[in-house]
Amino acid sequence: MMLGQTIHKSSFMMRASLIIALALILVGCKDETHQTAKKPKSQPPGLVLAVPPYEMPSNIQQRFHPLVTHLTEQLNQPVQLYITTSYEDQVKRLANGEVDLAYMGPSSYVKTRDNFPESHPILIAAEAPYRAALIVHKHSDINHIKQLNGRSFAFGSYHSYSGHYVVRQLLRLNHIYLRDLQFYSFLGRHERAIMSVVHQDFDAAATTEGLAQRFIELGYPIRVVATSELLAPTVIVARKNLKPELIQSLRESLLFFQSDIKHTGLSFFEVDNQDFTEVEKILYAIEH
């Protein structure tokens, strides 16, 4: 009898302890949820400038550091550099208002402008026009675009204007289509495409004339076999809802003070949407 009472009492105490423990856990969870809900979302201070990964991140950081410092001083607020994970990532972040500014190639700008009309980016300034280049290994027997029929080819990012669209249009004008290549690949960045030719993994690659020349000066065994006409410029754009007075300050900082940042290799000029008419035609020709 006493054993039964002891067991019953012990069982009761265990159930009571479990109920109390459960209540404490629930209270703790409620308090934690309440505290978490109170925490504000962390926002980076100042402005964020998004740059696509067209080169190695360290090279991009080195190139843009003087520009970011310049804008921080002129605007009297922090400007941070953000290297996106891809060209697509840059477009989405600008369209969603997650970054304030973007350094965009012609095709990325046109796609953002036309595919996200509710988030129409604001043109601020542009770099000087440039050329796309088609490169081969220094000792390659290829001397003309027509000789690429049946050869392998490396593009940069699919969304890169000079690293894909323009050079692919050059191939088309010489009656060479993707089906005519031995094989091809999109390697994501310009220097990856260049290095694939250096290591002779591919017979030819697409890049910019300026970048190809830089690699040649550094002693890499490549040469240019063809270049495009001058292309629409790379631009600095702002998200749609940035304040008009800030837009004006940015434009003045980039245009008026361009001599102060000339040593970065970045200098800016006025730009208009009419400058991208040819871009629209090439994108349509390639994707339709």
Rank of each mutant, 00 (worst) to 15 (best):
R131W: 01
N59K: 11
D141E: 05
V79A: 08
T227H: 09
L187C: 07
I282D: 07
A204L: 05
T84F: 08
H288E: 14
D100R: 03
F202D: 08
L170I: 05
I261P: 01
F257W: 11
L67C: 03
V271Q: 01
S107A: 15
Q182P: 00
P221L: 05
N76Q: 14
I236N: 04
N115C: 04
I286V: 08
T207W: 06
Q169C: 00
H34M: 12
V51N: 07
A133T: 06
G156T: 08
I142H: 13
G210K: 09
F257K: 00
H263N: 11
R93D: 03
R113H: 15
L71M: 08
A154K: 02
D180C: 03
T277F: 14
Q80A: 15
A128D: 08
I216P: 06
P44K: 14
D272G: 09
V235H: 00
Q248R: 14
R223W: 04
Y284C: 07
S108E: 12
T112M: 03
Q77N: 10
V48Y: 11
Y54E: 07
S267I: 02
S42T: 05
D141Q: 06
E287Y: 12
Q74G: 07
S11Y: 12
P117A: 14
I83V: 03
D203V: 01
Y82N: 09
Y130N: 10
R172E: 11
M195G: 04
K240N: 02
T207H: 10
H159C: 00
R93P: 01
V68Q: 07
S196T: 02
D201C: 01
V110R: 08
P57G: 08
D89L: 10
V224Y: 06
A95M: 03
D114E: 12
A95V: 02
K111S: 08
H70D: 05
S160Q: 10
F257H: 10
Y87L: 03
I222H: 08
V166C: 04
P117F: 15
N96Q: 14
I142V: 14
L173N: 13
G156V: 06
Q248Y: 09
E88M: 06
Y87I: 04
H175W: 13
N273Q: 13
F64H: 06
S152A: 06
N241F: 11
Q200C: 04
S107F: 09
L218M: 12
E191S: 13
F183P: 01
D275V: 03
D260G: 04
K92S: 13
H175G: 02
K138F: 00
H144D: 15
Y54S: 13
G150R: 14
S58R: 13
M195K: 06
A102E: 05
T33K: 14
G4F: 15
R214M: 15
K39C: 02
D114V: 02
V224I: 10
L254V: 05
I142E: 11
S162M: 11
R251M: 03
H144C: 03
P45M: 13
P66F: 10
T36D: 15
H65G: 09
I124F: 15
F12A: 12
E270C: 02
D114H: 02
L134I: 00
Y103S: 09
R214Q: 15
T227Q: 12
L101P: 00
A285L: 07
E287D: 15
K9T: 10
A154L: 07
Y177Q: 10
K243A: 15
I124C: 13
R131N: 04
